[in-house]
């Protein structure tokens, strides 16, 4: 490597540059935080039920089979848009009933098909989970996923 670059110069570039990029990154994150809260998500509809639904989602580690907005395991379908896929936009009651019925019917026990466990959620927990998934589907995700299949 060039003789003109000394070790101490390289060190100073490393520390100086890292601080520079870190400051930009933190600034942009704070801006994005504001953007999410004020524009891309329905912060005002973050009801206790939606929040409780997020905890149901977490307590049962759904993320380790499903993806949510594309993040998670890849063993089971994307659920960020499951509300839309089940027709929740046109028929919210129908979609809710279908989702709850689906959860109640697990595991199917069908040979050769991936099995979703029975989580034994109460009716209230199921409602909260559905509220959370509905709320999630309304986040402005730059039009991701490309289609209803998720």
């Amino acid at each position: 490597m060039s003789e003109r670059l000394t070790k101490s110069a390289a060190r100073n570039i490393f520390y100086g540059g890292t601080i520079f990029f870190l400051v930009i990154f933190i600034g942009l994150t704070l801006h994005s935080h504001n953007y999410i809260v004020n524009e891309s998500s329905n912060q005002d509809q973050l009801t206790p039920s939606v929040v409780a639904g997020k905890h149901v989602w977490e307590r049962n580690s759904c993320i380790n089979c499903h993806t949510l907005l594309g993040e998670g395991a890849y063993f089971a379908p994307e659920l960020g848009n499951v509300w839309v896929r089940y027709g929740g936009k046109d028929d919210p009651e129908g979609a809710r009933d279908m989702l709850k019925a689906w959860m109640a019917a697990q595991p199917t026990g069908i040979e050769g098909r991936r099995q979703m466990p029975q989580f034994n959620l109460t009716d209230q927990e199921l409602d909260e989970l559905v509220d959370f998934l509905k709320w999630t589907s309304e986040i402005d995700t730059q039009n991701w996923p490309p289609n209803e299949a998720g």
Binding site: R11, G17, F21, S32, Y35, T141
Partner: peptide, 25 residues
């Protein structure tokens, strides 16, 4: 020092590739 500079100068803002579709700008 050159290698770790390259790592952080690209990697810190490279976080942006996770912020495409999760509700971020």
């Amino acid at each position: 020092y050159v290698m770790v500079s390259l790592s952080l100068f690209t990697g810190i803002l490279g976080t942006g590739h996770h912020y495409y579709w999760i509700g971020t700008p």
